[in-house]
Amino acid sequence: MVELKNIHKIFHGGTINEFCLFENFSLSVAKGEFVSVVGSNGSGKTTTLNIISGSLPINGGQVLLDGADITKMPEYRRYRRIGRVFQDPAVGTVPNMTILENLSMAENKGKPFNLRLAINRQKNERYCELVRRLGLGLEDKMQVPVGLLSGGQRQALSLLMSTMTPVDLLLLDEHTAALDPRTAEIIMELTDQIVREKKLTTIMVTHNLRYAVEYGTRLLMMDKGAVVLDQSGEEKKNLKTEDILQLFNQISIECGN
């Protein structure tokens, strides 16, 4: 589904701080895979997501989505086929618009934003039903501006919004990192449920090793712009948190963290 071919990525090119993160980095994610990516800070996890979504320019290589070369496609056009949830719950929603208004925009993704009325009663009921399934009591707050909701509620909404229309790929960028442990658990459960239900190809970056082990069909560990551990299928199922923690610590010590 997604393929990165021989990616070169240099930060601060041409200055004294020049730093080469990726050199001939390649990664391929098959259709329907749920990949969780772990690694220490600066290992290139989020950069990988940013390169796929086009938020960062690359110095060489190719990005393929469903076989088509999207290397030169601007960021906003890539998002027509990609859904993304960010670490900051405020980024995934519009704070001064109501839940209803936010959902109606998300549902209209891929269609023209023209002069037709954005919401009607029929839609209201459907959105209410969708929100009820989140189990957070948001169905009574449909007319409340999203800015007044808690971080967890907003993140649940972002997740719902980014998967409302059919997307080829879902990018989750440490989407539970800003939440308290209990809420993070709820959001993670919800993510798993949505991904399974819609059979989404997903790449999830996380700092929570346990989530990486428990959820998903494939696990990647990155370090200094390279994949150091890549396990899927039966291997992944037998993996334990302790095993990765050990490897993770090893890498971190080498880095001096």
Binding site: Y79, G92, F113, R116
Partner: peptide
């Protein structure tokens, strides 16, 4: 309208408008 919604979103969260394609 849908366009009006998107305009309001543009003012308060440009990144979201981008993720809407």
């Amino acid at each position: 309208t849908r366009l009006g919604y998107l305009l309001r979103a543009t003012g308060s969260n440009e990144k979201l408008v981008m993720t809407l394609g």
